[in-house]
C-alpha cells in the first residue's frame, strides 16, 4: 500500500521462483479459474477490488476469497459491496480488518461493523480515491487537490495555497487488484462493457499482482488495438469466470 514500492514487474508476478503460480498461454498469464489465479493471496494482504456498487465487481475472485477464508484483509474498493453482496460477503464472514472506500450507503454490514469497532475504516472522497489509485499506479507519490479542504478529510494533512487551499493526498497501491472485464485476451488486454469500467483500469495499474476475470476470454487480435480500455501490461493473470449474477441494485424500468 506504500507509494514507495517499486512498480511490479509482470514476468516476476507469474514466475514460480517468486512463489507465484505460472499460467499458460504465450505470455504465461492465462489461468484455469479463480482458485488457480489466487493461490498466493494470503491473509493480511492489501486488496483492491473494482466495481461501483455491484456493477463490474469481480464475482468469481470474491467467491474464491470467501471459500479460502483468508483473513485480516485490507480492502480498497469504492463501496466494499452492497446489500449483502459482493465484498459485503467478506464483511459478514469477518475476513476484513481495514477498509478504504468512499461510500457506505446501501452497505449495512459495513456501517454496523464500523460502529461496533470490528473493523477500521478510511473514508475518502470518491474523486480523491480514484486519483490516489491512478497516482499510485502512475508513479506519482502524492498530489494536491482542493477536495475536502475545511472538512474532517483535511485533518492531519498538509495544506498548501495555490489559487486556493489544497490538501496533500498520497498515492495508493495494493498487493493484489481483483478486477472484472467483459472481454480479455491472453496478454491481459481488457475491454469493459458500459459503466462497468469505473475503478478497474486504475486499480490494474496500482497493484503488484492484478488478476482480471473476464466473461469472455477471446483470442489475441480479437479486441481492436484501438479499443482496449486496459492494456495487458497492467494485468499479470487472467481467467474466464462463470456463473455471473450481474445483479442490479435498483432495476427501475420506464413507465409504460
Amino acid at each position: 500500500m506504500t507509494a514507495e514500492r517499486a512498480p511490479a514487474h509482470a514476468p516476476e508476478a507469474v514466475d514460480p521462483e517468486c512463489g507465484g503460480p505460472s499460467g499458460s498461454g504465450p505470455f504465461l498469464k492465462v489461468f484455469a479459474d479463480a482458485a488457480a489465479a489466487l493461490t498466493d493471496l494470503h491473509s493480511g494482504a492489501v486488496v483492491m477490488s473494482g466495481g461501483f456498487g455491484l456493477c463490474g465487481i469481480p464475482e468469481c475472485s470474491i467467491a474464491e476469497l470467501l471459500r479460502r477464508g483468508v483473513r485480516d484483509l485490507t480492502l480498497i474498493s469504492n463501496n466494499i459491496g452492497n446489500r449483502g453482496k459482493g465484498l459485503a460477503q467478506l464483511l459478514k464472514s469477518g475476513q476484513v480488518r481495514h477498509a478504504i472506500c468512499s461510500y457506505v450507503g446501501g452497505n449495512p454490514d459495513l456501517e454496523a461493523q464500523f460502529f461496533a469497532g470490528e473493523l477500521t475504516l478510511e473514508l475518502v472522497p470518491q474523486g480523491t480515491f480514484a486519483e490516489r489509485i491512478r497516482a499510485g499506479g502512475a508513479g506519482i507519490r502524492a498530489f494536491f487537490t482542493p477536495t475536502g479542504v475545511g472538512t474532517v478529510v483535511a485533518e492531519g494533512k498538509e495544506v498548501r495555497d495555490f489559487d486556493r487551499p489544497c490538501l496533500l493526498e498520497t498515492g495508493l497501491r495494493a498487493d493484489f487488484a481483483l478486477i472484472k472485464a467483459q472481454r480479455g485476451d491472453a496478454y491481459g488486454n481488457l475491454w469493459f462493457k458500459e459503466s462497468a469500467r469505473n475503478f478497474s483500469p486504475l486499480m490494474a495499474t496500482a497493484a503488484t499482482v492484478t488478476v482480471a476475470e473476464v466473461e469472455e476470454l477471446v483470442p489475441l487480435g480479437t479486441l481492436p488495438a484501438e479499443d482496449i480500455h486496459c492494456p495487458g501490461i497492467f494485468v499479470q493473470r487472467i481467467y474466464q469466470g462463470s456463473h455471473y449474477e450481474n445483479a442490479i441494485e435498483y432495476p427501475i424500468l420506464r413507465s409504460p
Partner: peptide, 11 residues
C-alpha cells in the same frame, strides 16, 4: 448514528 460516506459529493 449514520454513516453514508461522502462518495463524490466533496469533489
Amino acid at each position: 448514528r449514520k454513516l453514508t460516506g461522502m462518495g463524490g459529493a466533496m469533489d
